[in-house]
Amino acid sequence: MKHHMILSIIALVTSIACTSQTNWVKTKVGSELSVKFPNKPFVDTKPERRLTMFTTSKSNDNCSFTVVVRKQVIKDYDRISKLSLSEQEKEISSFLNKGVIQFIQDGDIVTPLKSFKTGNYRGKEITYTLKKDNGKQSIIFEKFIIANNNLYIISFSTYQKGLCENDKDFFFNSITVSTEK
């Protein structure tokens, strides 16, 4: 009897977790990638800076989901695109390493910078903490992806460790490649 009750509770919790993520909004964030957000994101475009930002929050604004897209980020991308695949990967990896370190210069690194691949695109991921002006410390999980000379910064942040953990994982696992060159 206890065994059936435990299984029923596990099934209920699993179904609640699964259905809570079925209403997520798949959003094309650029010509190369799509991401699912927990609700429709606010979109802010700055054409003069070749920048678009998608952002939304959940759990009383304690969990933020953001994608920043910056177009034409590598000045000599045409030269790099003519290199061998291994040389292209080295150049893009070097660009990402420098950019990530510059981007998080005020943060304290929690997990080291790791490389990953999504479709044919290379990226880096890192977790760090950052103290906000209000004194709160946020935990930030970020993935940086270069796709056809566009930089995608996919970010989840929270003020409370473990809050929205399943949503964070679902958000990052929802990254899909739309088209590839």
Rank of each mutant, 00 (worst) to 15 (best):
L151G: 04
F65R: 01
F172D: 04
E89P: 00
F95H: 11
S155I: 08
G162N: 09
I80P: 04
S157L: 03
F171C: 09
I80G: 04
L33Q: 06
I16N: 08
L51K: 02
F141D: 13
H4K: 12
F65V: 00
F95G: 11
C63M: 10
F54Q: 01
Q160N: 12
V69L: 07
N23I: 07
F42P: 00
S34I: 15
T22H: 01
D169Y: 10
V110A: 09
S8A: 15
P38S: 01
N166S: 14
N60K: 12
Q160Y: 08
S86H: 07
F95S: 11
T118V: 06
D133E: 12
F170Y: 15
S81L: 11
K98Y: 07
Y121N: 03
K131P: 00
I153E: 08
S178D: 12
T179N: 14
M5K: 14
T129F: 03
V29P: 09
N150S: 15
K58H: 05
V69R: 07
K75V: 06
T27F: 00
H3L: 10
N166G: 12
T27L: 01
E32R: 14
E142R: 10
S34Q: 14
D78N: 04
F65T: 00
L83W: 11
S138C: 06
D76N: 15
S8E: 06
S157Q: 05
D133V: 06
